[in-house]
Design a binder for these strands. Structure first.
Lengths: 146, 146
DNA sequence: CTAGGTGCAAAAGGTTTGCGGTTAA
DNA sequence: TTAACCGCAAACCTTTTGCACCTAG
């Protein structure tokens, strides 16, 4: 192995990738670590920039490849909030995304234990659902009041 | 006025545009009518193609301009379901979007009267929220079973 | 050993912008 | 009358693809 692997303690990234039919590579490990380090819902471009700090030769195509593999094996979720770039979120618990239209920040809010539960139309097999709440965050609301 | 206006009966498009500070134009009327005609959540590109049938000189830039105006004055919602093009939905009632990962179709399901209600974190001013349910529609599920 | 992954560069897809002419109010 | 809007074309941003080389299993 040509690079340090630095496997994070608790996660089972290697196993989860294998289960999904994907190989474990240093790039996938690193992209996932980048997402875990700051849970601020970065775009692929932002993940690319952060990844290059420790892995200068990584390419944009590889970042997309890694993100897609992580999404397909259930370690990461895509978050679509507005026209423009997709964001990525490594929080797999049930939660909604609060998006501030003023400053663009996104934060997670866990859903109550017995979650709202969307309607289950006959025949439709639900895989997962995403709740995106749009509005103004408290910081921006305060700033605008003045 | 250089074009037929064909104002639809019930809606108050002209007034709603004016309230939002927008002008009423034949293009905006037509783009909105195109959305109402088939509520299948088309992309801007698809709206452009359909609009050109009756208004051959309309441009893509104008379609985006019209869609944005309609969104800003509360007549249309943007729907972000996957990487790629944004879709547009003229249904302003509370509902969620069911997206079939197999065939790409999207359909609306009204939310129960006393809707799920997302958490309301202190200070965050909610404007609206979007619920997107991903899965396999009944047609595709049946087809795959065989 | 080899299917799958990587890095690079070019292409494709989707959206925005600048500009000269037109029009709703 | 005039700020807003239109159509066109070019620019811009995001994502995908093709290809030669490499590597995890």
């Amino acid at each position: 192995m040509s690079r340090t692997e630095k496997p994070r303690a608790g996660d089972h990234l290697s196993e989860r990738l294998a289960t999904g039919g994907f190989r474990f590579t240093p790039q996938r490990r690193h992209v996932y670590d980048v997402l875990l380090a700051r849970r601020d819902h970065p775009t692929a471009e932002e993940v690319f920039i952060r990844s290059k700090r420790e892995m200068p030769d990584i390419s944009m195509a590889t970042v997309y490849n890694c993100l897609d593999a992580l999404v397909q094996c259930g370690m990461v979720r895509q978050v679509q909030l507005e026209r423009g770039a997709t964001r990525y979120c490594p929080n797999m618990q049930e939660h909604c995304h609060y998006y501030c239209a003023e400053c663009g920040s996104v934060f997670d809010v866990a859903l109550p234990a017995h979650s709202p539960a969307v309607p289950r139309p006959r025949g439709f097999k639900i895989d997962h659902y995403d709740i995106a709440v749009h509005g103004i965050c408290s910081d921006c609301a305060a700033r605008k009041k003045r």
